[in-house]
Simulated scan of single mutants.
Amino acid sequence: MTSDAEAYLKDFHQRRVGTTRRAFATYAARSAQAEYLSSYHALAERVPNDAMPRTIVDLACGDGPLLEILNDRGNSATKLIGIDISNGELAAARAVLSPNVRLINERAQALSLETGSADYVLSHMALMLMDDIEQVMGEIHRVLRKGGKFVAIVGRAFLLGEVGEVFLNVFRPIGKAHLAQIRFGDSRTRSEDGWRELLQHGFSDITFEDIDVDWLPTPEQLWQSMLETYDTDRMPEAGREQFKRELLTAVTPMQREDGKLKTGWALRLVHASAE
């Protein structure tokens, strides 16, 4: 049976196609090890850019920004496959991607791909939302060849810095009063120890890289981005109006001289090899 969380996510991404692209595709990302054009590029750079034949799966591909980056490399021997549960996101992806990119509408918990058929399984900001994560990881391991690579970007913290602290202080009481409880994903996907547990069977060479995405929105831009988050979307109108009023009141004094707020998103890159 489809859970309340999965049903909601399918509905949200049908109504708000391209949300994840809008949040992450245009902002530079950085870590202690490297700088990236975006968090999508951080994933793409884990795949060698050469003429070797490879099959790359983008799990929960959305409207296709990662697949675009990989396809634009022009490596004709690379086979790209995008998988997503949202028909709306896949339709948007089909409109911008090469016909050579294969797109599949199915759940990550039951992939139709052949065993050992993929060299890379990549995923951007999705695994921490999925039901039955152990089943998902089992499917990822099944479709990877021995020595194949699993690489994912997941959330580490929502908003960086003082803006993040203020956001939580405002949001928590409003969310408690107005939001029905829906459990998104497995808590193990939110920590390194949790990922080590999830990857302990069938994977080796597990590494992590903390990545920050810098963002300088105006207060109004910050609010517009909140409208494309699951929690704000689920709020009744009265709760949403209260959230907007209190959040803007709290962050407006934090503006820099140029009117912008200094914040961003904290992400984690997870990398492992299939045994």
Rank of each mutant, 00 (worst) to 15 (best):
Q109K: 04
L113S: 08
H178V: 10
N71I: 01
E114F: 03
F167D: 05
K79I: 12
Q181L: 13
D119Q: 11
N105V: 15
G155C: 10
R102L: 13
M130R: 00
R73G: 13
H178M: 04
A92W: 05
A157F: 06
I133K: 00
E68D: 09
K149I: 14
S123I: 12
I104S: 02
V154C: 10
F167C: 02
A152Y: 08
D131G: 05
G161T: 07
V121F: 04
L129P: 02
G116Q: 05
T55V: 14
S112N: 06
P53T: 06
V154P: 04
E134L: 01
L103A: 10
G116N: 12
T55C: 12
V96N: 03
I83Q: 02
K146P: 10
N100Q: 15
V163E: 00
I69T: 15
G148Y: 09
L159D: 00
Q181F: 11
A118K: 03
G147H: 10
V136M: 02
G88R: 00
M137F: 12
N75D: 10
S76C: 04
F158L: 11
D58V: 13
G62R: 02
S123M: 10
F184M: 05
L59G: 10
H141G: 10
L70Y: 14
G74H: 04
L67C: 13
T55G: 04
V143K: 00
L67G: 12
P173K: 00
L179K: 03
V57P: 03
D131Q: 06
M125C: 04
G62Q: 08
R54M: 14
E68T: 13
G82F: 13
V151P: 02
L168A: 12
M128T: 09
R142W: 10
T55M: 05
V143T: 11
P173T: 07
L67N: 11
I133G: 03
D131S: 05
T78F: 08
K146Q: 13
L168E: 14
G138E: 12
G185K: 05
G116K: 02
S187P: 08
S187K: 06
Q181C: 04
R172D: 12
A157W: 09
